[in-house]
Amino acid sequence: MLGEAIIKGMAVTAKNFFGSYVSKERLPTVQYPEERLVPKENARQFPFLVYDGDDWEKGLRCVSCQICEKECPPKCIYIIKSKDKKPDYKGQAQFYPARFDIDISVCMSCGICAEVCPFESIKMDTEFELSTGDRFGGLLLPKEKLAKSNEHYRKVHPTDAAASDAVLAAEIAKAEAKAKAAAEAKVKADAEKKPA
């Protein structure tokens, strides 16, 4: 019969229309910003720099190895290496970034920087409400704005942060063991030297 399929189609539309009053499946939209969806744990927006402790300048993990700058696909990271060194989380003297800028108007949130970083120092944030009145300066983030504490990282990506903490703890343990072994060897060597 002509029009039969059209009536069938209308039945589907009606099912969806009335269904939208009772079923979340048929009406999944939410009214942003009054209502918000729970953010996904893995969600990534723009990168930030992790620091340990309370002082961001002291605790910044970045050693300005510039791997992220090289690997960044749209080349939005800009690093100037420091002249002097400061102790890192292991107590080892390391360079630090004298300047670390990310142009988030260029950044495409791919997460390659976080992936290639060997020092667990650059990670992806979930902050997405970043609108600003200043088109140029407001979107060019210097390291003061990029630095966020490890507590923040634990809050936004608990699973990843735990893994990263474990990696760092293992590194510290390794460094300590090495230092201990070196100290013991030194004591031993000194002890051997003395009688002679």
Binding site: N16, N42, A43, R44, M108, S109, C110, I112, M124
Partner: peptide, 25 residues
């Protein structure tokens, strides 16, 4: 819109796993 509603479900799966809805990388 019905099609996009279903697509959104798959994109939710992608986001949960990879962190991005469309640009999964």
């Amino acid at each position: 819109m019905y099609a996009f509603r279903e697509r959104e479900r798959i994109l939710d799966l992608f986001e949960e796993l990879t962190g991005a809805r469309m640009m999964c990388n």
